[in-house]
Design a protein around this nucleic acid. Structure first.
Lengths: 146, 146
DNA sequence: CAGAAAACCGAGTGGTTTACTAGGGATTAG
DNA sequence: CTAATCCCTAGTAAACCACTCGGTTTTCTG
């Protein structure tokens, strides 16, 4: 019952871009350094996020990445699904295209996994990148105040 | 973000034992056949459940397995944790002994994974094997009624 | 126009996990 | 005794993870 680093790294990168939304494009090297992620590995992850339309890239010198939409329009669930696939504790209860269950008769445990899936989705879809930025701001304020 | 078959198979097996709680011990072969699981593989899973004190075994002919406690005392979360380890979308937010986070400074995404973890745990700990049996009974009644 | 900065691409790799199978040994009812 | 049953260790093919390596292409800047 665990996430791979893909989802985690991807979210950290997206959060980084969200914190700098509105300014010039940010080179991946900078994101990777700030978030402490292997640059080459992150490259592969962000390629997926680009294909899913979550980030835009600007090539050439002074290029980099920016969010494709404002932070308030990007849910954590969008990022996680892009990198880890549909939320599905088990194939037969996948959010999208659940696989056919070998036993077509009623399966009690399947209901449980469906409830788990829904509760995960509910959390991930209730938080946007903007929410994360606001949280970060609040945390920062608490530090400087003391 | 997925469960392995361990948790699923284990839960199916425990549900099977719960449905026959109170009668003679059930040989693993029967459980495996009823739940459509490889017997040898299930053997390894139930060994873990035995070591965790969730089932008792009776050796020799006419032996088998029984639940160590009444179904109402066994939560789905107990079974899943036994087989899949602590609920931890990420190591640094494991329920038990969270690993040290490389960046000791405040990490926003960690909070999100902690919320995911809690919501999974909440679902799994709110359902007992007895609940599953009652559900199964209800489903059965609906079929025979129609 | 040269050079550097950056995105883009595909292949390879060592380690771990998964979902088993194989082949036995120990225990006990009948 | 013997058949049923639990118990244990080891192996294994395939997949997946978390990267690394070595480039090519695009574009800005001096």
């Amino acid at each position: 019952m665990r996430l791979s680093t893909k989802g985690h790294y991807g979210l950290k990168a997206m959060f980084d871009l969200a914190m700098h939304y509105g300014s010039e494009p940010i080179p991946l090297k900078v994101v990777a350094e700030r978030q402490n992620i292997s640059e080459h590995y992150l490259e592969q992850l962000i390629a997926v996020l680009r294909k899913m339309g979550l980030v835009k890239s600007i090539r050439g010198a002074q290029g980099g990445y920016i969010l494709a939409k404002p932070p308030s329009d990007i849910k954590v669930g969008d990022v996680v699904r892009a990198l880890e696939g549909p939320i599905a504790p088990l194939d037969c209860v996948s959010e999208f295209e659940p696989s056919y269950c070998e036993k077509e008769n009623y399966c009690i445990s399947r209901d449980i996994w469906a409830r788990v899936r829904d509760s995960i989705a509910e959390v991930l879809d209730s938080i946007t990148l903007e929410d994360m930025c606001l949280e970060a701001q609040k945390a920062q304020d608490n530090i400087t105040k003391s």
